[in-house]
């Protein structure tokens, strides 16, 4: 497992959203790439939002694809203003704007027709949408909640891959419950299964939690503009999950 880095907070100059915004009116290779990564990471919640607005799966897929096609075009970076804050809010705002103005575009044009498109798996998104416990949530709430889930998913996947690369996948699967406060196998059980002492298991769990926290804050940092926003964003996402 990677040791926690010396400086706990990432260098904000290089976080993706900062890079995008730094490019301002123009766009650089770096900013385009950063934006693409961000969009690929968080398009699910947008799809859910559009679905919740009452669109059929086909129409929602069209609209989402069409939105990203436009969004990734150069001219749209002009619209970025310094006070736009978090990527999460900006993305939803852009989608709302898109829906309000672009609705009367012909379907055929939406399908891309030469514009670059992101490889988005809409079938998976639809399956995911259907699994979401919606309990009467508004489209905005679905989006926020979906965002929080997408974020957590990315972080846990990253963490898992790190452990796998170190040959410690078994550790992750056994210890992951400690990340959310319990419910997994007892330390004694894990110790027996993995051939460690109980003390070693406890220590491993502790390190896993620390690394998880680092990765989560890192992931969030890529979508906000400064270190003080990270805690705020965590609180927002916590509330979005119904906390």
């Amino acid at each position: 497992m990677k040791e926690p880095s010396a400086s706990p907070s990432p260098d904000f100059a290089t976080t993706r959203w900062s890079v995008v915004r730094a490019a301002g009116g123009g766009s650089t290779q770096a900013s385009r790439q950063a934006l693409e990564v961000l969009c690929e990471a968080y398009w699910h919640p947008l799809y859910s939002y559009v679905r919740r607005q009452g669109e059929s799966p086909e129409d929602a897929a069209d609209l989402t694809q069409g939105f990203f096609a436009r969004f990734l075009e150069k001219e749209h970076l002009h619209a970025l203003r310094p006070e736009q804050g978090k990527f999460r809010s900006y993305l939803l705002g852009a989608m709302k704007h898109f829906l309000a103005n672009e609705w009367d575009r012909k379907r055929a044009q939406r399908r891309g027709g030469g514009r670059p498109t992101l490889p988005l798996d809409f079938e998976a998104a639809e399956g995911r949408y259907l699994r979401e416990p919606t309990h009467d949530l508004t489209p905005e709430r679905i989006y926020e909640r979906g965002w929080a889930i997408a974020l957590l998913d990315r972080v846990l996947t990253r963490l898992r891959r790190e452990m796998e690369a170190d040959g410690m996948l078994g550790h992750f699967d056994a210890l992951k419950f400690s990340l959310s406060g319990g419910g997994g196998p007892l330390h004694s059980e894990t110790a027996a299964r993995l051939g460690m002492t109980e003390a070693a298991v406890k220590q491993a769990a502790h390190r896993l939690r620390r690394r998880y926290r680092e990765l989560l804050r890192d992931e969030i940092a890529h979508t906000v503009t400064g270190p003080d926003e990270v805690d705020d964003e965590i609180r927002c996402l916590f509330a979005a999950l119904g906390g």
């Binding site: 889930i149 998913d153 846990l156 992951k176 990340l179 804050r217 965590i234």
Partner: peptide
């Protein structure tokens, strides 16, 4: 809370988020 079908790695998202705070 009930753990929803889309919960990441089958863990409770609220507690996961909670755990990340200072």
């Amino acid at each position: 809370r009930p753990i929803a079908a889309d919960a990441p790695q089958g863990l409770c998202p609220t507690c996961l988020m909670n755990a990340s705070l200072a």
